[in-house]
Structures are given as C-alpha cells and as structure tokens.
Computed example of a mutant assay.
Amino acid sequence: MANESQSPHDGPDEETIRLATQIFNAAREGEAENFRHWLAQGLPPNMRNHNGDSLLMLASYHGHVETTRVLLEHGADPELYNDRGQNPLAGAAFKGNLPMVRLLLEHGAAVDGTTPDGKTALMFAAMFDNGEIVDFLLARGADPRARESHGMTALELAAAMGAETTRERLAALGA
C-alpha cells in the first residue's frame, strides 16, 4: 500500500524500483525482445543505474550483441561513461568481444576514447592479448602511440602484462 503522505522528493516507490531492477537485469541477460517492446513504448535508451551504468554498458559488457544493437538503433549513446569513467568500447575490448567492438564503432563509439587513467580500447585489447581486436582497432584508426596516465603505450602495457601476441604485433608496427 502506498504511503499517501509520501512526498515526490522521497525517491521512487517500491514498484518503480522493481521495474527498474527488471529493466537493468534484462540488459545484463540480453533480453532483446523485451527492449524492442519497451523502447517502442518510450523507455529512455540512455537510462542509467546507481553506478551510472547505462543499459548499453550492461548489455555490451555482458556480450549481448543483439540487445546492444536494439539499444543503439533506438538512440542509446555508445559514448556514455559510467561513474568509474568506463565506456562500452573499452569493456568490449577487455572482454575480447570483436563483434561487439565492431558494432559499437559502427554506431559512433570513439576509437580512442579513454578511461580516467588514459587507457584506450586498444590498450585493453593489447594488455589482454586480444590480437584480432588490436588489428581491428588499428584498422579503424586507433592511435598505437597514445599514452595512458603513467606514460605507457599499448605496446608497453602488452609487454608488462606478458601479452606476447599483441606485443609482437604492435612492435612490428614500430608502435
């Protein structure tokens, strides 16, 4: 039963919280059909949770290409960073998900967007030895000479992490 003395400034009611939880869980689980319906009914495509994670961030990080596509086609912003300064492209590179990296770039993600410590998607792919993603990002214009906050390039980060495949690829470029 709703508290009739509740002020609109007291925050969301239990039903609203339940619905929001359902929506964010659907993004994590990749429920593309639900999002087709909800977005057509007016769900904001850039809705965020208490951590600043957008629906797109959650769907892409958890590898749900079709749900991510639906969100992007309905106006979700691939450049929304969460409260920790993370972006969907860096998350996809970290996870080694080339189809997701491709989809995000096709829909406007900045190839050289950085986290607060200056790391790019290329750096994450290099550090975790995701050679296909390194090659793809380089082909899409990623800067192999970009430096993160400690002055390290993707090549140096790959070497520090023992990521031999990506270290060799970047070294061959003279990066």
Rank of each mutant, 00 (worst) to 15 (best):
N51M: 04
A172I: 03
N3L: 12
M47D: 05
R84A: 10
G162V: 06
G113S: 15
F124C: 08
M161P: 00
S7K: 14
A172F: 01
E148F: 08
R167G: 07
Y61E: 09
L104F: 13
R140L: 10
D117C: 00
I17D: 06
R48T: 14
G91R: 02
L58W: 02
D143M: 03
T165G: 07
E29F: 09
T114R: 13
G75W: 14
G42V: 08
G42H: 12
R167V: 00
N34M: 12
A2R: 12
V70C: 13
D10N: 08
A158K: 12
N130Q: 15
T120M: 09
R69E: 13
E31M: 09
N49L: 00
V65L: 15
G85E: 01
A59N: 06
H64W: 05
N97E: 09
A27D: 05
R36I: 04
N3T: 06
T114K: 12
E33G: 04
E156V: 08
L72P: 08
R102N: 11
E31W: 11
T114C: 06
G52A: 05
M1H: 07
F35R: 07
S54Y: 03
G174R: 03
H37G: 03
G131Q: 15
H9M: 13
A20R: 13
A159V: 15
H37C: 03
L105K: 07
D135K: 15
T68K: 01
R84P: 00
G52L: 05
E29Y: 07
G75Y: 15
V101P: 07
N97L: 14
R102A: 14
G151Q: 04
R84W: 04
A139I: 09
D10K: 09
E4D: 11
R28C: 13
N34D: 13
T153H: 02
V65S: 06
S7R: 15
L89Q: 11
L55P: 03
N25E: 15
M127D: 08
G162K: 13
G118N: 11
E14K: 13
N87P: 00
E14H: 05
G63I: 05
L55S: 05
E132M: 10
L58C: 03
L138Q: 04
G141K: 02
A154N: 02
L58R: 11
D117M: 01
P99T: 13
E164Q: 15
K95L: 03
E73F: 04
Q6V: 08
D112G: 10
H107K: 13
M123Y: 10
S5M: 13
G113W: 05
P88M: 08
A139H: 06
S60K: 00
E73N: 14
A40C: 02
H150C: 03
P99F: 15
E79V: 07
F124E: 11
M57N: 04
L58V: 01
T16F: 07
G118D: 12
Y81T: 09
A110C: 08
E168V: 14
A2P: 00
